[in-house]
Design a protein around this nucleic acid. Structure first.
Length: 236
DNA sequence: TCATTAAATTGTT
DNA sequence: AACAATTTAATGA
């Protein structure tokens, strides 16, 4: 709720973290920037909610968001994590239909929004922008397919590893550093395991030198191992 | 800036 | 789900 009250013009440093601005022509870019707003979201704030009609195409400048849906029993299911550099909602924006999911800040974040009219103007006028959106849709499709693969993995350590790797997708989320600030509880929601099991999996991944567990987050040491490595769930 | 306290997060059972 | 231990954030002198 507070996101829509504390809006401001994006700072230059924030603009540099918006990947699709670089593919625009100077004139297009100038127009796009004038239609960009950023806002701070506190942990727990909603960026968009199910049923509301889209006003903006959103992107993560800083922090971490999650996309979730409410299931029938009242509990909510986290579908995907959205790290810096990630833009989302193009599906609903294109169709001008209501959002089908909630997007909520996992921790204090900076969110950018491009007004829906400017989004459509760019689709009509910029080839670079069209390429970006097309690539975005394609990569996201790939991401959801691999998410289904991950769901069917039986080994919890592998599931955590692959889910972490997905958060470091270079095209969808170009601005993720090597440190990921996420609590083990949130990671548990994201992966669909208990916090205890995630804690254990993180220990395994650390023992295998793939990550470094820190308070309130973790550091990736070997992204390739997270993507492709095999981890034994055997205790030592 | 430092010390104290409250809150959040982790590791374990 | 509950617990203690640890880390961070907040507060005020």
């Amino acid at each position: 709720m507070s996101l829509h009250q504390r809006r401001r013009q994006p700072r230059a440093e924030e603009l540099s973290g918006i990947p699709w601005l670089a593919v625009l022509q100077p004139a297009e870019r100038e127009r796009a920037v004038s239609a960009l707003l950023v806002g701070d979201a506190q942990a727990g704030d909603y960026v968009c909610r199910t049923g509301k009609s889209p006003t903006y195409w959103f992107g993560v400048v800083e922090g971490l968001l999650k996309m979730n849906i409410d299931s029938m029993d009242g509990a909510s299911m986290t579908l995907v994590g959205l790290p810096p550099g990630g833009w989302f909602g193009e599906g609903t924006v294109v169709k001008r239909e209501p959002y089908r999911y909630n997007v909520q800040a996992i921790r204090k974040s900076v969110v950018a929004g491009l007004h829906i009219d400017m989004f459509h103007w760019l689709l009509d006028h910029s080839i670079g922008f069209n390429r970006f959106v097309m690539s975005q849709l394609n990569e996201r499709l790939g991401q959801f397919i691999s998410a289904r693969e991950i769901d069917r993995l039986s080994n919890p350590d592998l599931r955590v590893a692959r889910s972490l790797a997905a958060l470091f997708h270079p095209l969808l989320y170009p601005n993720v550093g090597e440190v990921l600030r996420i609590t083990q509880q949130e990671l548990a929601y994201l992966v669909g395991l208990s916090r205890q099991r995630v804690n254990e999996a993180l220990s395994v991944l650390q023992r295998e030198r793939a990550i470094l567990v820190e308070y309130g987050g973790l550091r990736v040491l070997d992204l390739d191992a997270l993507r492709h490595g095999a981890f034994s769930s055997k205790r030592l």
